[in-house]
Amino acid sequence: MIYHGKKGQYTGGEAIGILTLESSPVAFIPGDVNNASTYPFPIRYQNVDGFSVQKAIGKDPSIYKNLLESAKSLEQQGVRAITGGCGFMGIHQKKLAKEIEVPIFLSSLTQIPFISTIIGIDSKIGVITANAKNLTADLLTAVGVSNSSNLMIAGLEDQPNFDQFAIKETGRLDVEAVKNEVVDTAKELVADDPAIRAILLECSLLPPYALSVQNAVNLPVFDYVTMIKFVFTAVVQCSYKGFL
């Protein structure tokens, strides 16, 4: 087999690139998108200069230039697909996808059309987000959601432990307290609308609590990590061994 090097690429074997926010000290625990041990395959991270949590949730268009530069850097480093470190990055999904050659899937919200298809036309998706007030129609449109009538959205912006950890970025994470806030939010969603047949965790900080949510509501739970693993299997296919 003959391989050819790519100019500007200094490492190999990192199929998935992740664009990260410029965060204050945050405890990225296993299961978090920003913890490399979350994945059974290598990850390449790329920080986006100046892209704060506030700019992400506020969907600040001025950050796009930096986002594009960081995505191009990941592409040059040889990744096969690029995702984001915040669901609200999805506002840039369509624009960035036009300028980058590898697949782009910036937000966990891009899974909504797929989930809607597999749960049935009369069923609903419970979406737990970092900030429900800013998860607006323009963001949903940008990630390919043309009809949001089947979405039941609940935000964590008023949950004190999540707010201190994720939004105010105090540097302190009480895992049990945040887990309880997320689980209670999921239980309330399902209790309020029995038509919910799946849960989607929007925020990149929420996958560590997905199992607890599933145990509490007994529904399929989608998040950033389910999306990243799915795309990885598409861009890194494998051979099969077995028997008949």
Results as ranks from 00 to 15, higher is better:
residue 148 S to Q: 05
residue 84 G to S: 09
residue 184 D to L: 15
residue 23 S to K: 08
residue 15 A to T: 09
residue 194 P to D: 01
residue 22 E to F: 14
residue 32 D to E: 06
residue 187 K to P: 04
residue 203 C to G: 02
residue 117 T to S: 15
residue 159 Q to M: 06
residue 201 L to V: 05
residue 3 Y to V: 11
residue 58 G to L: 12
residue 87 G to I: 01
residue 147 N to C: 11
residue 109 L to T: 07
residue 93 Q to H: 13
residue 225 V to I: 10
residue 82 I to V: 07
residue 191 A to D: 13
residue 220 P to C: 05
residue 215 N to F: 04
residue 123 S to W: 02
residue 204 S to C: 10
residue 143 V to M: 05
residue 124 K to D: 02
residue 89 M to K: 01
residue 128 I to W: 10
residue 109 L to P: 11
residue 59 K to E: 13
residue 106 L to I: 06
residue 133 K to V: 13
residue 6 K to I: 09
residue 157 E to I: 03
residue 37 S to C: 10
residue 45 Y to M: 01
residue 60 D to Q: 01
residue 83 T to I: 05
residue 135 L to Q: 12
residue 98 K to W: 09
residue 45 Y to F: 10
residue 63 I to H: 07
residue 178 V to G: 14
residue 7 K to V: 10
residue 40 P to S: 10
residue 116 S to V: 00
residue 230 F to A: 13
residue 51 F to E: 06
residue 133 K to Y: 06
residue 161 N to T: 10
residue 79 V to N: 08
residue 163 D to I: 12
residue 143 V to I: 10
residue 197 R to A: 08
residue 48 V to W: 11
residue 78 G to W: 13
residue 77 Q to K: 12
residue 48 V to Y: 08
residue 121 I to H: 02
residue 226 T to A: 03
residue 95 K to R: 14
residue 39 Y to W: 04
residue 141 T to W: 05
residue 215 N to Q: 12
residue 74 L to S: 03
residue 185 T to I: 01
residue 111 Q to G: 00
residue 165 F to I: 02
residue 23 S to V: 08
residue 54 Q to C: 13
residue 24 S to I: 13
residue 221 V to F: 09
residue 159 Q to N: 11
residue 44 R to L: 15
residue 213 V to A: 08
residue 68 L to P: 09
